[in-house]
Design a protein around this nucleic acid. Structure first.
Lengths: 284, 284
DNA sequence: TGGGAATTCCC
DNA sequence: TGGGAATTCCC
């Protein structure tokens, strides 16, 4: 299986060689790659990989929004066998075809006279397709061909489809990250205003989660509205109150950015809560 | 003359009717428009307007990066006279042609077979042209034609070229704006760290200017490096010291964003400097 | 109109 | 590779 998040689709203009799609269990020091194995068979076989849409895996890549870049000449297959029937794809890239050229691809025999007149309708069509399809999610489709008696790889097995792969550059699947905060402490009562700088977020699909790992898993959320999200890159919010106002010593908790829909989150930052002293509620 | 800044070029996909290019002296309540007057002549005349490049005004719009949108049918001329020879253009729009279609335009008789093979070279060419030309600055070129004895407007006068017009959506000409700061006061000694949220800036061409309008024009600049500019939309900086550390009462000064190159600046925000109390340097 | 964000590109 | 920003589009 391929890793679902953290891999970035590329545009043609960005050139090749940005590293291959890692496997689901890939680590920094020990990389793995998407792999399939043919079971219950001994002999030579050929495994081919194609990109398919997220929602309609069986429909194959009718519209070629993306292109898999395996080898120099574009062939995306691996021969395996006769004993080890495991095919590992170590150099899979996913190419982002721009919306404009994508619509061109779909109508090969188009002549220049018509280019201008049909341009707007083509673009419209591309837009609608884009809405339905979500260009930022794909799956891999592996098809294995067994060797026939003539030595040709003609006996196709039933294809298998991978889990979904999200473009890490897509606004709803990019890595969440807190870069900087103007304060890293506040009072146990909450209500402290914090300026937080972060990587790109979507103002309607983001929350700031405060939590404690031990003690039964307290969590609470920073208080802000979508208008407090500044240009996708900063959030001004108020801290939530801690579960108990009666603490004697400062308590350290964590906060992280979290997507409401996908549920993924950023690395946490520490935040220190100070006891509230009567009559002197902000004692830094 | 047209207004140099604050007008936004439009893409075709954005549709027409986004308001006409204002004149240099245009105000909110009393709009003016680019206007030319033919001197020392009485009679009918026709004035035509064209877009030309910033750097090479005489070369006309060879490459049609922009298109002036005057009337429904695209004609950009006004007839004047016989007494008032002032031509005012109240509905001039500037259309941003995308780089891709711009390069297509330049080679009308291209056939589809060649599309793919020439695509990359065309794009490369467009890129180079873009670098040289700066697509975000244009001028207007007015040409007046006097009526000849047959009633035709054939007698062209020497064209006049307007001052440069900057696309307000271009990163180096957009409106500067301070949205929010986490503090609006600090000490007279400076060194207070401020988080400032702003509209898009370029990290190498921005400074934060503190100033006082009276008292001989004190000014000083916020202390930060390009890496303190977060994703073009936030700046973390330290306040500069005031010209005098000996103040008895709080002093209110102003700060504004300012482009180093173009020199334009944002609306100012107030900032209050508090006296420094010995042994207690941050007395809020 | 301008605010806002997605898409695409550059190094 | 990912960081960063320009360009383009949407409402």
């Amino acid at each position: 299986e391929p890793k679902q998040r953290g891999f970035r689709f590329r545009y043609e203009c960005e050139g090749p060689s940005h590293g291959g799609l890692p496997g689901a269990s890939s680590e920094k020091n020990r990389r793995t790659y998407p792999t399939v194995k043919i079971s219950n068979y001994v002999g030579h076989a050929r495994v081919e990989v194609q990109l398919v849409t997220h929602t309609d895996p069986l429909a194959s890549t009718r519209t070629a929004w993306w292109a898999v870049h395996c080898t120099e000449n574009g062939t995306c297959m691996v021969d395996v066998g006769p004993n080890d029937l495991t095919a590992s794809f170590s150099n899979l890239g996913i190419l982002h075809v721009t919306k404009k050229s994508a619509s061109h691809d779909r109508r090969q025999p188009i002549n220049t006279q018509h280019l201008r007149s049909t341009e707007s309708s083509i673009l419209k069509e591309a837009k609608e397709l884009g809405k339905v399809m979500d260009l930022n999610i794909v799956r891999l489709k592996f098809t294995a061909y067994l060797q026939d008696s003539n030595g040709g790889f003609t006996r196709a097995l039933k294809p298998v489809v991978s889990n979904a792969i999200y473009d890490s550059k897509s606004p709803n699947a990019s890595n969440l990250k807190i870069s900087r905060m103007d304060k890293t402490c506040g009072t146990v009562l909450g209500g402290d205003e914090i300026f937080l700088l972060c990587d790109k977020v979507q103002k309607d699909d983001i929350e700031i989660r405060f939590y404690e790992e031990d003690e039964g898993g307290w969590e609470a959320f920073g208080d802000f509205s979508p208008t407090d999200v500044h240009k996708q890159y900063a959030i001004v919010f108020k801290t939530p109150p801690y579960h108990s106002a009666e603490i004697e010593r400062p308590v350290t908790v964590f906060l992280q950015l979290k997507r409401k829909k996908a549920g993924d989150s950023s690395d946490p930052k520490q935040f220190t809560l100070h006891p509230s002293v009567q009559g002197k509620p902000r004692p830094f």
